[in-house]
């Protein structure tokens, strides 16, 4: 009984993960598996699209925390896009906007990857 799912889409060299439903300690392993799958397929430019993400707890945030260093070390990034305000507020509570590139739209996130590829490196704290 899980009301969370991850959809995979490729936009050029960028792997888009579409999150849907509620991300908590029960469903966080599904996001973890999705990020691992992307990395195994050498997709390190990841956009997490949160338009249909209805809820997140710290267990969900923890997945992003656990992978961001590895992804950046491999030359990529996890950019987060399209969050609903109630979900963004949880990211903001922990100061995630300081650590993660969080933008309003998927297009902005993809554009940022283009800029990164043109010589502007992602910021790593």
């Amino acid at each position: 009984m899980s009301n969370f799912s991850v959809g995979f889409r490729s936009v050029g060299p960028v792997q888009v993960l579409d999150l849907r439903g509620e991300l908590d300690a029960h469903t966080a392993s599904e996001l973890e598996a999705a990020i691992q799958k992307a990395l195994e397929e050498q997709n390190t430019r990841i956009v997490v699209c949160g338009e249909n993400l209805q809820y997140i707890s710290s267990a969900g945030l923890g997945v992003f925390m656990a992978y961001i260093e590895e992804v950046r070390e491999r030359g990529g990034d996890i950019k987060i896009a399209g969050l609903q305000s109630k979900v963004y507020n949880v990211f903001d509570l922990l100061g995630f906007p300081m650590l993660f590139d969080i933008v309003e739209t998927e297009e902005q996130a993809i554009e940022k990857f283009r800029e990164d590829a043109n010589g502007v490196p992602p910021t790593t704290a």
């Binding site: 710290s58 267990a59 923890g62 997945v63 925390m65 656990a66 992978y67 961001i68 260093e69 590895e70 922990l94 100061g95 995630f96 300081m98 650590l99 704290a125």
Partner: peptide, 11 residues
Amino acid sequence: IFKLARKRRAG
């Protein structure tokens, strides 16, 4: 959060 990210800690 910066320390946790460096340690790849999830919680």
